[in-house]
Design a protein around this nucleic acid. Sequence first.
DNA 1: CACCAGGCAAGTA
DNA 2: TACTTGCATGGT
Length: 212
Amino acid sequence: MISRRLGSIYQKLYACFGRQHWWPAKSPFEVMVGAILTQNTNWVNVEKAIWNLKERRVLFPKGLYGLTEKQLAGLIRPAGYYNVKAKRLREFLTFLFREYQGSVARMFSCDTRRLRQQLLRVNGIGPETADSILLYALKKPVFVVDAYTRRIFSRHKLVSEGVGYDEAQGLFMRHLKKDTQLFNEYHALIVRLGKEFCLKNKPRCEICPLKH
DNA sequence: CACCAGGCAAGTA
DNA sequence: TACTTGCATGGT
């Protein structure tokens, strides 16, 4: 009974860590920017980049789009991969203005599946970034899979090692209630657990809260 | 010093 | 289709 196992793991994580209050951002647009900036990057570094954008007062669609790629790269430098990410942010902004007139509000009323496919076509937005935007910015019931998710759940034999994104996501979305708040909290708790107990070279499985 | 972080696209075989 | 590599800062 997979749904029972997934539910039990969630209960343990919530009991252990409590609410995680994700996504730590003031606006949906800030979530979208953060989702791109945090690709393979420590969140603390992303916060510094976000702070630079706020200090410059450009953390809104027209503001960011008004910068050149080089200016943007300079501001997001602390987040790493700054040249790649500057390009990716501009690709996303081009999409946002082309399809939604630069209005995040217009995205809310759009069909989730259609939106996901649109996002995946943007160069620089892959499955995890797209789903982070859908779940945390647009409040759609979409489960976000990340490196920790696969590592943890393959160790617990709920998915096979090296499982693909869509397959892993399917497991959660088939066996859990499609509930935005549940998916929000579950993914955040997985990241919390991963940071403390499931690092590649320093697994602390002996004292992991999931250990019976 | 080595290793890692809330990935992704492009290149190669 | 399935691997490999480049991208880069800042913390442990």
